[in-house]
Design a protein around this nucleic acid. Structure first.
Lengths: 256, 256
DNA sequence: CGCACCTTTGAATGAGATCAAAGATGGTGG
DNA sequence: CCACCATCTTTGATCTCATTCAAAGGTGCG
């Protein structure tokens, strides 16, 4: 399980900011925007597998963009159980809640070793003042994350266990495919069945049985932490999964 | 069950835009911002109880701010069941998903008669270009809604039925109190127990039993659609409820 | 005043949780 | 390089919370 670690030197990624790379999936950045984004981020910071990057109820100092590795965001309930809200990959923003709350409502944990590009909230405010289109784009990203959460809510609130697990698998495949983190038709999950349970509102025991059922029905194949997709259309349909990774950019204001 | 209907004439609310009123809860608007907001909205539009304002998978033309009345946003699953995501009150924005998707991922339905202030997406883009602080504020609102969804997700995914119902009641009390929609320590819910079930991931039968249990334990009191809160601290604790209606505005860029 | 819709209640059923223990797996240090 | 230990997966048995099914009260609107 190897992941890119820190690239030394003043700049972050190879020649540009992490956020710029993410944004450029949606729009063609103007030179001025590109330059402003290059000034946004601090030097990349690394965390080990299991490290807590942002802790619930604490006051994060910065926001981050994922450069490499997996993370998840979760909350801890009073009764000791955990709900995982979302998994974060390359290009995902963490700590956005800093734009609404001084104390973080969520814990963000590194699932693998990760490298993150940090940037302070105030500098971000400057960025979107100078470049409103980028602010609008970030708003679009926030809205789309809200929709993903809503999908997961419907999945957990209104579908049986098998569909919940299926839906998570579909989502991971869709997102990882888009990031080329997929190997043919298989992905590697650095997750325990307990993690999957915490994301789907199930116990690890029951997750095990559901996975097993999906294998028996020839929908997926597993060995170790590797999952091969055998019948994606069927799983997508059984799980009510809808891919929302496309972003509508037609309404955005012009660049500066 | 009476609600304000349309105010005829060129302007929307009494001397200003609905969105301006919402924003002014968080920041003091500059004259330029105020003026721009006044130009944002079209004439208010009314819908009857039960009307569908935005339909899933269709292409909404505009966004709206709630001027009066209740609505909820929901999705319909393939199996015919419904998940209610969120209830919308005075000042809430609907159709924000238009900023990320061309097709709406959610249905928005009027729970009571409502009056809404519509504004087109493109004009909104112009607004936040001229006034980046308002864009930043909208971003904050989107992020805070995401957090509320996350809270509900944890509630549904990881707490028993009684706590789920309790959490919803706490949320409604907190939000309605802030909007002065509360009468002493009681609120009026224009919801059926089926609606509550669709919001909490339960059946109406079980919602009934849970409400009944809360009454028996002296936590709430009911008659008809009226709910009186008798022991809010206890309910808040049992339901793991956290009020997130406060918004952090310290990071916002200066107004124009 | 009557009908449609909502609430309430009981009994039976079932999906998923809990409890317990036996295999796998893999990372670590000797 | 191997052995050991911790962690994770798998499986079975039992239990429980919530659903389902069914039917009897309420309530308010037209």
């Amino acid at each position: 399980m190897k992941h890119l670690l820190c690239v030394p030197g003043g700049e972050n990624a190879l020649g540009g900011s992490c956020l710029a790379e993410r944004f450029s999936h949606y729009v063609r950045l103007s030179p001025a925007e590109q330059a402003a984004l290059d000034r946004l981020e601090d030097r990349a910071r690394d965390f080990r597998r299991g490290a807590v990057v942002i802790r619930e109820n604490e006051r994060p100092r910065e926001m981050y963009v994922v450069r490499s590795g997996w993370l998840h965001s979760s909350t801890m309930l009073g009764n000791g159980s955990r709900q995982i809200m979302r998994f974060l990959f390359h290009g995902d923003v963490l700590g956005m809640s800093l734009l609404a709350f001084s104390d973080s409502p969520e814990t963000v944990t590194a699932v693998t070793d990760v490298s993150l590009c940090p940037f302070p909230r105030e500098r971000f405010a400057g960025l979107i003042t100078e470049h409103p289109r980028l602010g609008a784009l970030m708003l679009g990203i926030a809205v789309s994350e809200r929709a993903s959460l809503a999908d997961r809510l419907a999945s957990i609130g209104r579908t049986p266990a098998r569909a919940r697990v299926g839906s998570l698998i579909c989502e991971l495949f869709a997102r990882m495919r888009r990031l080329k983190m997929i190997d043919g038709d298989a992905i590697t999950l650095p997750l325990t069945q307990e993690d999957i349970g915490d994301a789907t509102g199930l116990t690890s025991v029951h997750v095990n049985r559901m996975l097993r059922g999906l294998v028996e029905d020839g929908i997926i194949e597993r060995n170790g932490s590797r999952i091969r997709m055998l019948d994606e259309p069927r799983l997508t349909e059984q799980a009510n999964f809808i891919d929302r990774s496309e972003l509508e950019t037609g309404w955005l204001p012009p660049p500066r």
